[in-house]
């Protein structure tokens, strides 16, 4: 039974999407995962999502580009950024882009879920 919220995960490593999907589906979210941003952004034209969890560094369209596109065309969607290359500059850049939350990898799933809940409450 779905809880009515749709989550999109974009990460070029399959394991991240697979693990996130499993964890979030256990809380009855509808989850779709993508290995790169291009088809993910196309999918936004077809279906409404509440939260996008995206990797920062990806081949092709990166996480910051995803954030800018979403904020421009789908401003209601909250974006959570995750990255294995966390530093202060990337965090500031993401926050300036109106990211909802920013996590260095590895990301504690419990914290990610709490962040998604907060995003949905706002």
């Amino acid at each position: 039974m779905s809880n009515g919220h749709n989550i999109m995960i974009i990460d070029d490593e399959k394991i991240v999407g697979d693990m996130a999907r499993l964890s979030l589906e256990q809380d009855d979210y509808e989850v779709e995962t993508f290995l790169n941003a291009e088809p993910a952004l196309k999918r936004l034209e077809e279906k409404d999502f509440d939260v996008i969890v995206t990797d920062y560094k990806m081949k092709g369209i990166d996480g910051m580009e995803v954030l800018r596109t979403v904020k421009q065309f789908h401003p209601a969607i909250k974006v959570i950024m995750i990255t294995a290359f966390a530093n202060l500059d990337t965090a500031i850049e993401a926050l300036r882009g109106d990211v909802h939350d920013f996590f260095p990898k590895p990301v504690k799933i419990k914290e990610l879920k709490a962040s998604i809940r907060r995003a949905l409450e706002n």
């Binding site: 990460d11 490593e13 394991i15 991240v16 294995a84 990898k105 590895p106 504690k108 799933i109 990610l112």
Partner: peptide
């Protein structure tokens, strides 16, 4: 199983 991690980690 409590963390999302990738190969970089």
């Amino acid at each position: 199983g409590d963390y999302l991690f990738d190969i970089t980690y």
